Amino acid sequence: MAYLTASERRTAIVQAAARVIIRDGLAAATTRRIADEAGVNLAALHYSFDGKVEIYTAVDDMFRATAVGSSLESTTGGTREEIIRSLLQRFQDLLRTDRGVPIAQYELLLWTLRNPDKAELAAASYSTYISTFAEELRHATDIDGSDITLLARYTVGAIDGIYMQNLATGATGVSAPELDAISSAIVGIIDSIHSPR
């Protein structure tokens, strides 16, 4: 392997770990397998990372950055419903691109939840999605005092549900009318919560 800077070596290791987790599952992602996949020796891996936990965290960060980056489009002028639908569609498109990535993300999520000392990683992951979606929703033309964070949380919940069902059933997504209905329902729930009784 050609000479790599410390930063390039870290990136190569994280990308290798992601490939192993996507292809073979989290249980197979030992430091030795990751080092072999990255084309580095174990000493170089341990010099770059303190261990699997740090590597898994970096992989989760990479997956999240890719997913969030794919959702950053101009949404100025859209309604809440249009923006939510756009987010749902873009994540559905990610699912169609590579089913292995969301499976790997859920494996990492469950791993953090099975390890109480790592639970903050799961919370941080969701917090990033929610804050990013909330920022997009701030551009809605009809925001009118809506609870933006709650809108973002419900959108993340819908994405999770669609992802998991499609992974379980082998489906590639839901139809355009269903996306419209889900988006409308999320806005309706938020409006119902905040409407005077």
Rank of each mutant, 00 (worst) to 15 (best):
L95M: 04
A140Q: 00
D160F: 08
R197W: 02
A29R: 01
L110Q: 13
A168W: 07
S175D: 13
G69R: 09
D117A: 12
L110E: 14
L26G: 03
E136S: 14
G51K: 05
R10M: 01
R138Q: 12
S74M: 07
S131Q: 10
G77Q: 09
T30S: 15
P177A: 04
T30L: 08
T112K: 06
Y3K: 14
T172W: 11
Q15I: 00
T75D: 12
A140V: 02
A104D: 08
L121N: 01
I84W: 02
R32K: 14
Q105N: 12
L110F: 14
D191L: 03
I13V: 11
G157S: 09
L87R: 07
Y154L: 14
S131L: 09
A185S: 10
L87I: 13
L110Y: 14
T57L: 04
G69H: 09
V53M: 06
G188F: 01
V59A: 01
Q89L: 11
I193D: 15
K52S: 11
L88G: 06
G39A: 08
A17N: 02
D142M: 06
G69F: 12
I130H: 08
G145P: 01
A171T: 10
I103V: 15
S183D: 01
R90P: 03
R99M: 05
E73N: 11
A16I: 00
E37R: 09
A181H: 13
I159F: 05
Q105G: 11
L179N: 03
V40L: 07
I103F: 13
M62G: 02
I130L: 07
E107A: 10
T31I: 13
K118A: 13
D147C: 02
A35C: 08
R19K: 13
R153D: 07
D144A: 12
R114Q: 15
Q89F: 11
S183F: 00
A18F: 02
V156K: 07
G25A: 06
A27V: 10
Y47D: 09
M1C: 03
A6C: 06
I103T: 14
T79N: 03
D142Y: 06
R138D: 14
I84N: 03
E81C: 08
E81G: 01
F91M: 10
F63M: 09
E178R: 15
A27D: 11
Y56W: 09
V20F: 02
R9A: 07
Q165T: 14
A122Q: 08
P102N: 05
K52C: 07
F49D: 00
